[in-house]
């Protein structure tokens, strides 16, 4: 198999494991996500276990990465090098959190939930893509 095809297969398998993990974890359900964020109400702590389990296994992956010269199907690791904490990071994350609380969806679960077939999932994903496009095509190109 060519390297391109191997990368495609790896991405498909990785995406499927991610989507299955989301479904198993309960993250796909906006009501549960909002219950997790509702710390002043009937708090549902279960998503602490989702994030904890995910970070733990990803951390082991990072330790392996640090011992590899390059990824299996590419020449370099494409990891963000930026270190500075700037206004777009904080403002963008704040806006994202507001939307996450209102809808109970973040990007991964919203897309994974499309296969369940609810109209509200499609509406959310459409609005999300518009929001991304407004940022990438207009906002971040101001004055360029």
């Amino acid at each position: 198999m060519t390297r391109q095809l191997l990368q495609t297969v790896a991405a498909l398998v990785s995406g499927t494991v991610f989507g299955f993990g989301l479904a198993l974890s309960g993250m796909l359900d906006p009501t549960r996500v909002q219950g997790f964020l509702d710390i002043f109400g009937a708090w549902d702590p279960s998503l602490v276990f989702v994030l904890g389990g995910a970070v733990l296994v990803a951390f082991m992956g990072i330790q392996i990465m640090d011992r590899m010269a390059r990824p299996t199907f590419d020449d370099t690791f494409h990891v963000p090098a930026k270190r500075e904490i700037d206004a777009p990071l904080v403002i963008g994350s704040a806006l994202f959190g507001l939307g996450w609380g209102i809808g109970g969806f973040c990007p991964g679960p919203a897309i994974a939930s499309l296969s369940v077939g609810l109209g509200q999932s499609f509406l959310f994903v459409a609005a999300m893509l518009v929001g991304m496009t407004i940022h990438d095509r207009m906002w971040s190109r101001r004055g360029r």
Partner: peptide, 15 residues
């Protein structure tokens, strides 16, 4: 489910 999400992230990174 969380551990599978972490596994997926590790796979995409290492592969």
């Amino acid at each position: 489910g969380g551990m599978l999400i972490g596994l997926s992230a590790a796979m995409l990174l290492l592969l």
